[in-house]
């Protein structure tokens, strides 16, 4: 057993939520630059240049890329040989969020669903925990804005819908989302599992480096097909018209029930933020 004190987790989470919100990943910047080369619309190119400038300002001044600094979502892979001392894992993550959102001047965006009263510290975080082999604790912070999260959809297709049904649904969902989720977007797609597993797959797909194809050739082909069809809709950056609505489509799949073909779409705005720490 390897012991990790909860204070270490608090400090790591605090650092990650601040860093994720200030420093846009190189993968996203590269995707903007690639988009600039292929974007047909001058307005679309101007938008992409503005987003590159915005990311530079956020990094230089260490201020949030976007005012919506997100619901704090964490993917945690905990080695079975790790023992956490001190506070509970979930409490340590919440404390890191509390400190990071306060000291980092990040917006607190979490409220009661009925009264709409703000919790005041951006907690509770969403923690997706997986037990794995080894003695490491791997935490990925993936703060997610509400505007793009609102465009998420889950559908339980019938197996007869097949790949065509999947492609049609994802493309239609993007068309309906239009300018709402701050395009250019990254489209996370989950296929299979149960309903809740499918939604997690779609979110997890967003963690991949932007534009890195799936290691499964069948899924990589599906990603390429959907990306082409989505961008052919003509919506472009910010939905103002153009050829770069999506920077990438990422698909993850999982076996499903013989009766089902679950499909989840989780769209991420261009401020695709994540930081990872292995403790």
């Amino acid at each position: 057993m390897r012991a990790i004190h909860s204070d270490t987790i608090v400090a790591a989470v605090k650092k990650m939520v601040m860093g994720a919100n200030y420093d846009l990943g190189d993968d996203v910047i590269h995707a903007f630059e690639k988009g600039l080369k292929q974007e047909a619309s001058p307005v679309g190119r101007a938008v992409l240049n503005t987003l590159i400038e915005n990311a530079r300002i956020a990094h230089d001044e260490q201020v949030p890329i976007c005012q919506d600094t997100g619901m704090a979502v964490f993917f945690v892979e905990m080695g079975q040989d790790v023992h956490i001392e001190g506070a509970l894992l979930r409490d340590a993550i919440d404390e890191g969020v509390r400190q990071g959102y306060k000291d980092g001047y990040l917006r607190k965006s979490i409220c009661d669903p009925f009264t709409r009263k703000n919790t005041g510290d951006n907690t509770p975080a969403v923690v997706i925990l997986d037990m794995v082999a080894g003695d490491k604790l791997r935490i990925t912070a993936a703060p997610k804005g509400g505007g793009s999260e609102n465009m998420s959809r889950l559908t339980m297709l019938t197996p007869s819908a097949g790949k065509k049904g999947i492609v049609d649904f994802v493309v239609k969902r993007c068309e309906e989302a239009g300018s709402n989720p701050c395009p250019p977007v990254i489209v996370g797609v989950g296929i299979g599992g149960s309903a809740e597993k499918c939604m997690i797959l779609a979110k997890k797909a967003l963690l991949r480096h932007v534009g890195e194809p799936s290691s499964d050739p069948e899924l990589a082909a599906l990603e390429a097909e959907m990306l082409e069809k989505i961008n052919a809709l003509g919506m472009g950056p910010q939905g103002l018209g153009g050829t770069t609505y999506a920077l990438a489509v990422h698909v993850e799949k999982h076996p499903c029930h013989i009766a089902s073909l679950p499909l989840a779409v989780n769209i991420c705005c261009h401020a695709s933020r994540h930081k990872e720490t292995a403790l």
Partner: peptide, 22 residues
């Protein structure tokens, strides 16, 4: 339509882009 992030010391406002209008 905006909910800005808090201002850092010395600034009048934090980051302040638009939210979704619908």
């Amino acid at each position: 339509y905006v909910g800005p992030s808090p201002a850092k010391p010395g600034k009048v406002i934090g980051s302040a882009g638009p939210t979704t209008s619908y």
